[in-house]
Design a protein around this nucleic acid. Sequence first.
DNA 1: CGCCTTTTTGAGCGTATTCAACATACGTGG
DNA 2: CCACGTATGTTGAATACGCTCAAAAAGGCG
Lengths: 235, 235
Amino acid sequence: MRETEIQAAWYGLATCEKCAIRHLVLFADLTSEDFSTVHLPIEDLWLPPGSALYQPDQDASALFTVREGLIKLEQYLADGSHRIVSLLGPGDVAGLEASVSPHYEHAAIALLPTKVCRIPRDVVTRLSPKLNRQLMGKWHDMVRRSHQCVRELSTGSARQRLARLFLLLAPASTEHCRLFGRDDVGALLGITTETACRMVSDFKKRRLIGEVATNIFSRDIAGLQAIADGDDGAL
Amino acid sequence: MRETEIQAAWYGLATCEKCAIRHLVLFADLTSEDFSTVHLPIEDLWLPPGSALYQPDQDASALFTVREGLIKLEQYLADGSHRIVSLLGPGDVAGLEASVSPHYEHAAIALLPTKVCRIPRDVVTRLSPKLNRQLMGKWHDMVRRSHQCVRELSTGSARQRLARLFLLLAPASTEHCRLFGRDDVGALLGITTETACRMVSDFKKRRLIGEVATNIFSRDIAGLQAIADGDDGAL
DNA sequence: CGCCTTTTTGAGCGTATTCAACATACGTGG
DNA sequence: CCACGTATGTTGAATACGCTCAAAAAGGCG
């Protein structure tokens, strides 16, 4: 088991009022006055791939808004193996359970270079009534993401799952997308590392994807869509 | 596609204050006074297996506390097939999205004879501040259930998944448990109906389960646990 | 440059799927 | 009450798929 620690570098005190993605974060409804009552530090953190935001059963002292990048939530099974149960992207909140429970329930680990802002649990508690609408919305997002993982990434053949993953990694309009380690692809899709690897190879051979740099891919959206829907991978 | 309609029979106006499972439902924190402000009807419904509480995109006019039985939440895929993304049991709330969104996102269908109480969306809206703690808790439950579905029911071999399902169907202390149609077992575990069927047969042959009546099973908890953890099904 | 980790590829095997046939249960009408 | 028809459950045989184990290749990093 690889040792993953919080390697986050301190990035700077967040100026939430001017946050570029504020419309989609927890503080969307707050006024300037509300901000002035927040005296606890809200930090911006940069997470390199592989670094953990938190570990299961750890004290849930904060929650984290994802601003850029991708976070995996994984849980451990009885036999010591693990499974990725959800992915969190920009606008999502990691560790929402901090608002209702004393401990985290997953390991939250960056899959890509990721920027988050850390909001102490006490800030949420204090602003609770004002944040309620947004909190509900974030819970709703969590549920949707999780159901998406079952529906898209844990259903059908390995080929279909990988195709759907490539489509989820970035909007169709985006030129390139960044993939993560084959181990994580496997743990996410519920297949082995080897199968994940073989499938990626196969997609490259069929020109459904093209690797423009290490783990940076261009995509044939229509082709991937066809694979994702029907199981038709015949040449 | 089978036509499933709301066949729920009206059961009686719920007397929430005296509800036997009130400690685990949405109204746990309310006072007598609060109840007196609720003038909209809260109905108790009995759902026979196969009947739908709601369908996707339907107007989300109420949410439903499950009191007895089991509800499946399913979503449809591009190719017309469907996948069960979560199970809801006693204490869980179906259609929580009604509190934040105008439409339902799943089909919610009873797998077993099921008793629910229907709480109009307006009741929740009106009592909103008082229900907040409980609502958060229910969202949290939804997320946990959904992650459980990935972790336990969509991971490992078909044999492991089925073993875990039998363990989830009822507490270990419960003598018997009730299973549902093989189609639904398949859609839940992400395997085909035939495989689900063969596995159930196999479990019976190995005496891991015993069918005391149609779809009522006794269980060898320890045996099932062994299958669920290691993949060791060797004779 | 060598060491370590991650990725890739191969071969053989076991499992789940497919497609088909058959059995059983259930509900309806004769 | 039984006969029939449909829906559901069960089983078989062949195939395809993904897994295991093993080994080689390709990056990173000291």
